[in-house]
Every structure is written in C-alpha cells, then in structure tokens.
Write a protein that binds this DNA or RNA. Sequence first.
DNA 1: TTGAAAGCGCTAACAG
DNA 2: CTGTTAGCGCTTTCAA
Lengths: 344, 344
Amino acid sequence: MNFESVTIKDIAKELGISASSVSRALNDSYEISERTKKLVIECARKLNYQPNSMARSLKQGNSKAIGVVVPLVDNRFFSQVIDGIESIAHSKGYNVIFTQSRESSKLEMFNVDHLTSHSIDGLLMSLSTETTDVGYLKKLHAKGLPIVFFDRICDEINTHKVIADNFMGALEGTTQLINAGYRKIAHITGSINVSITKERLNGYKLALERNNIAVNEQHIKYCLYGGKDRKEIENILIELLYGENRPDAIFTASDMITTTTFSLLHQLKFSIPKDIAILGFSNVQEADILNPSLSTIYQPGLEMGKKAAEMLIGLIETKRHIINFETVTLPTQVHIRNSSLRAE
Amino acid sequence: MNFESVTIKDIAKELGISASSVSRALNDSYEISERTKKLVIECARKLNYQPNSMARSLKQGNSKAIGVVVPLVDNRFFSQVIDGIESIAHSKGYNVIFTQSRESSKLEMFNVDHLTSHSIDGLLMSLSTETTDVGYLKKLHAKGLPIVFFDRICDEINTHKVIADNFMGALEGTTQLINAGYRKIAHITGSINVSITKERLNGYKLALERNNIAVNEQHIKYCLYGGKDRKEIENILIELLYGENRPDAIFTASDMITTTTFSLLHQLKFSIPKDIAILGFSNVQEADILNPSLSTIYQPGLEMGKKAAEMLIGLIETKRHIINFETVTLPTQVHIRNSSLRAE
DNA sequence: TTGAAAGCGCTAACAG
DNA sequence: CTGTTAGCGCTTTCAA
C-alpha cells in the first residue's frame, strides 16, 4: 500500500516514547509496563495503525505466506483442495499465494520461481501432467524450502505427501463393475507421467486379476492432455466402441475424463448402462441427478487441502530437522449409482 | 525463505564492487557500464541470486501483489473468476493472494484487514451474502487503496466494477419460460442484500409485466443463506409445491440454488418439466447431461475475472487520480435445454 | 560510471 | 522497564 500509513514512529512521537517501546507494546512483550502497553494500544487504535508486514518479514526472515501451485482451479477437486488449504492457512495466520500451472511444466517452473523469490515460507505442490523433471524442486527442497506434495506427487523428493487412496478406489470401483456382471472393462486414464495414473492403473489391474479376467492392453487408453482435450477422448471412444472386442464398461480415471466420456457417450447415442456402463473418479456434485445417475469414486479434496496445509505449516514451524517424512493416504469413497448397474 | 540466500552484497563482494552498482546492473539502469552489467548478471546467475522482493517492496512501497476476497472457491462460477484473475495477474507480474469470506461479513472484514496489512497493491472484492455495511471498505478506498468489485458489488463505493448482465439474463430466461407456455413462474433467489439479487428480480418482474402476468409476491422466495442450506430450499419448495396456487415453473437465481432445487425436485419425485419446469442461473458444466438437461443462464466467470484484474492493475499502475469509474457489464448466455421446454 | 550513505518499517541485542 | 543502536536487503540520492 503506497498510500499514507501510520508507522510505529508516529505512535512513538505522539506518545513521546521510543519506537522500540511501541514495538514491544504491540508485540505484547514481557518487558513492558502495563501502563505504556495500554497507552500504545490505545494510540495505535486511534491513529488506525496497521503494521507493515513486509518490514516485519524482512526483519524476521519469514513471510507468513505459503505458495500453492495447482494444475488448474476451474475443477471441482482442486477448488475443494484450495478451499481446505485456505481454511487452515487462514486459521494459522498465513496468507495463501496462489498460482496455476495449467498442466504446463514450463509455467509450473515459472510459478515456483516467482513464488520463492516472493518470499514464501513453504510450498504446496500438485504436479502438472507434463512434468517429468523435478530437479529444480529438489534443489529448492535441499536448500531448505519446506514442500508438501498433494495428489500429483513425485517419488524423487523425500518430504511430506498427501494423496487419496487411488489404488483402493480403483480396485473397489473396478470390482464393482465386475460384480455387476461386466467383463470387458476398458480403462481411460491420464498421462502415465502422473503418479495417480499408475496407482489407479494398478488397482484396475488387480481387480481384473483377482477375478481371473485377463488384462487387455488394447482396452487401456492414455490421454496425453489429461482429458482437457475433448477430441482426444472422442477418438479414444470411437476406437473402443467401434473397434473389435468392444468393451461393455468403462472405468475412467479422472474427473475431467469421467464427465467428458459420459457426455460423449450421450452425444454418440449410446445408452448407459445398457450399451455401455461407466464408473469413474469424479468429484462432480451433480452425480445423482445426471442421466443416468453416475457412479463415482470420490476423492476427499477438502480434507486433502487441509491436511497438506497442516503438514506444511508444521514443517515451517518446526525448528529441528525432519527426517521421517510421512505420506498420508486419505480414503476414497465409491458411490454406486445407475451408470454402472447391471444392464437390464 | 529463511534459508541460505544470496544477496546483492554477496555479488558485490565477489566482484569487488559496491552494492549499489550491483543493484543498478540488475535493474538495467542507464547509469552503469555494459561491462559491469554483464559481469554482475553473469555472477548473479552463477550464485543463483534471487532478489528478495520484500526488501524491494519495503523500499519501493509496493508489493506487486493483489488481494482477492471471494465468498467461496468451491463453486464453478467463482473458480472460473479466480482462474481469470490469476491468468491476468500472472501475465502482468502480480501475485494473487487469495481469501474466502464463506459468506460471512465478519470473515470478510478480517480478510480485508489481513490483506491490507500484508501490503497488497490493490483489492478485488465480491461481497458476502451477509454484508450490509461496507464502511470499512469505503475508508480504505478513500485512503487510496485501489478496489475493483465484481459480481456482488455495492453502490456506496465509487470505483470500477464488473458484473454479468443479470437483469438481461433474468429477463431473457423468464421470457423463455413464458414463451414455452408457463404462466405461474416462481422465483427462488438469494438474500436481498446482494446486488445481483435485485438485478435478477427486476429482470424477472419485467418479463412478467411485458407479458401481462401479474407478479405474485407469494411466488418470490428469498434464501437467507444464499442456497448453502439445502434444508432451507427444501422448505421453500414444499411451501411452493404443496401450497395453493402451485407454480408450473421455477426460475432460480444462483448456481447453488439452481442445482439444489433441481436435485430436490428429483428427490421429491417431481417430473421435470412435466410437473414443474426449471430454468436458472448456473455455470454447471454438466447441464447437457443432467436428467433432464438443464436450461441455464451462464455467467462469463473467466472473462469477469480477467476484466476485473485488468481494471485493478490499471488502477494500480495509473499515477493520476481517476475520476471516471466504469461499471463493465458482460453478457450472460441463456441456454435452453429440456428442463424448461413445454410440458408434453 | 561508480561508491558511500541514508532509509523503507520493524525487531532485538545491549546498556542503562 | 525503557532508550539507543544496528541491521534485515534493497534502491536511490548525492558526491566524487
């Protein structure tokens, strides 16, 4: 704020005491008399004093701000995460500085650079689809920047992480499809770069194996753009549905892929679940009122954001060196609705 | 970042020159020789120098950060707005510091306080449902803090504002219901405190008047909690649908109210649009694949965020005093789908 | 073209 | 309990 502002000097002058006394009074130091403290606080209110947090930060070497990098905010899951982050950060007196990588690894790097040079006390990261090299993050982490990863994590950096139980969600979801009588279950998923892709793929495969269904690699389709590109999914669906060995169900691995696939099945005039069943990861709020209602695997976005923020602030405020980093896995919830019921 | 960091002093020492020369070189000042400039830039890269933006801000009196207060982020419309804000801010080198009021006027005030004391250069605001007194904002604005309001604006403060064309959207939407043959059109809306409530109500009323339909105040229902409370809407619906003079259509005034009403109509076993038609303001992505597909009035969230951020940064970077503040109105889009078609 | 020095607003070590 | 002083990292006069 470059507009007129009251400093501790003004208060000092007003009261005819030193600036340090004012500082002490305002910071509720023990080495100040009750009388002066009251006087100062009174005067501060009167002059409408606002502490300049940049000066304080500069002095103290911390900023009481945490940086966040998400792939995108216009997405129910990530906006829930951000909601959670904000609520914890706020309650602990931290600001949230917020950026989007838009699934670009270049933008991601730029954002991290920008954030760290703007003096954040710690970083909350969910990697972009594109990212394969986390060397720069590793360096920052080695230098001492507290980092907590959530959802889209990476193995190379040893720090706290929070994920949903992607493996279990995929296992349970796929198993439900099998229990409903489906045998030829296709899997449409994101880029193989991303941690969650592998976890979900493994759950899917195990469900098939447990039920003595051979994994058909033709039925596993990767979206390079993480489902952002509707055309890409449309091509995949056409390949699956008009090709040989047509699947009778689809297990989709992300919010965007799930709803886009659902919408495309409508567009292509397939009847769900008669012609093809669908069940997928999604936090869409309207699952119950879709046509038909959509079976989903729900990820606890709000809780993830809260947990990640708590862990990060924990790291920031711990003086001693942390050795035992933790990966917290939050349960996913499988909601069976009509889109994955037995046909007929 | 309280971990080891390189300062201009380190560079100065390394090169045997003064800190001011380093500063000049780094800032591409005209009063520096090409030779030293190169040397400094080279050395900065080598030492991996990161400028401390807090020190710079403290000195220069600006922070290159803008504060944002939204009612909530876990909402498609507001997350689109934030997406837009972030994209513009980012491209102009500003950080976005982000807070939620959670529809509480107390939290809103707290957030603004926190933001301004954290030295933001400007503020982007959408008021909470609860807010009636904007005196504190008025004071800040009078003191020189650039503020731009979006969506939920207020009349009392004379500054730039960005809104959707709520009046026109409501007028067109209601008219469509009338054209489809509905005559008894109820209106469920938010708190009357909020600017958009009035604008939408006016559009609704004009549509009725133009078609010689008397406005029935019994058919206009206000949600005090802006639709956050499902029970509140349920009570309203029961009153409307099981009372006298049952409406044949509902025009809903916000995202949350629209989808919740839709979902409750399902739950109450009403057939849409046979028993009751519905059309409302909503940015829900799944409108096409709902059961039945949902007629919506769409607000350009992304554009609103971009425009608001542009205007704010304009205000921040303009030296001269602004007198002519502008209210930008962005068009809404009415999408007619099955939920508001003629019954049978 | 460069360096010395002051100062942004605040905190904290030191001295009284 | 209080004041003096130094300094966080940076920019910017002022002098040279």
